[in-house]
């Protein structure tokens, strides 16, 4: 997908430059863009490293596991066909907590294990079960508590309050998540009627 988008961007830029006569600016911008990206990466590196360090402490001291326990009652209501003491349920709740803490590197392998277990619970059918579907929908939504990278970008472009957007992010994420889950659940219920 990205292959097409990227080439499309480059071709579109060249055509527009020819039409508007901006060819001089276009060739200069290749250099500008590439070096701007590196400047940006250097300026966000500090906060990214610092935050990753803090989150590593959270992981090592069992915050992820504690959060997983906290969310178990809600998750067991959402995933009704997944037994609460199964490893599938454990992977799901750990994946959700890791996502909340912004531990993307930890969340993905946990999510992949959850999918494997969910597939087994679905007797390895080639079709997505309601629970698999819901779990993927939860992972297509963003449930991160502190969007660190984003705030770092804001800061490096001179925001006077890089973190002020966080409450708005929470509200928006929760509503979007509710809509996603409702659509998933409603269509799942609808498709069961047809079977």
């Amino acid at each position: 997908m990205l292959n097409y988008i990227w080439v499309f961007m480059l071709v579109f830029a060249l055509i527009s430059a020819i039409l508007t006569g901006n060819s001089q600016a276009l060739s200069a911008s290749v250099l500008e863009g590439a070096s701007e990206a590196v400047t940006l990466l250097i300026s966000i590196a500090g906060i990214l490293c610092f935050w990753s360090g803090i989150m590593e402490i959270a992981k090592e001291s069992g915050v992820t596991k504690a959060m997983a326990k906290l969310f178990a009652p809600i998750l067991s209501k959402l995933f009704k066909n997944v037994p609460k003491n199964s490893s599938a349920f454990e992977y799901i709740s750990l994946n959700i907590s890791a996502n909340l803490l912004g531990l993307g590197n930890a969340a993905t392998p946990l999510g992949l294990s959850a999918m494997k277990e969910l597939k087994a619970l679905n007797h390895n059918k080639p079709q997505a079960s309601d629970d698999m579907l819901l779990f993927v929908v939860l992972n297509t939504a963003s449930i991160q508590l502190i969007p660190t990278t984003l705030c770092a970008y804001r800061q490096s472009y001179g925001s006077s309050a890089p973190f002020e957007i966080i409450p708005a992010v929470w509200l928006t994420s929760v509503i979007a998540l509710l809509v996603g889950v409702t659509v998933a659940k409603t269509l799942s219920a609808g498709s069961r009627k047809h079977l």
Binding site: W6, M9, L10, F12, A13, L14, S16, A17, T20, N22, A25, L26, A28, S29, V30, E32, G33, A34, E36, A37
Partner: peptide, 9 residues
């Protein structure tokens, strides 16, 4: 780089 090119063009 691609977006900067899109903007300058």
């Amino acid at each position: 780089a691609a977006v900067t090119m899109l903007r300058s063009s």
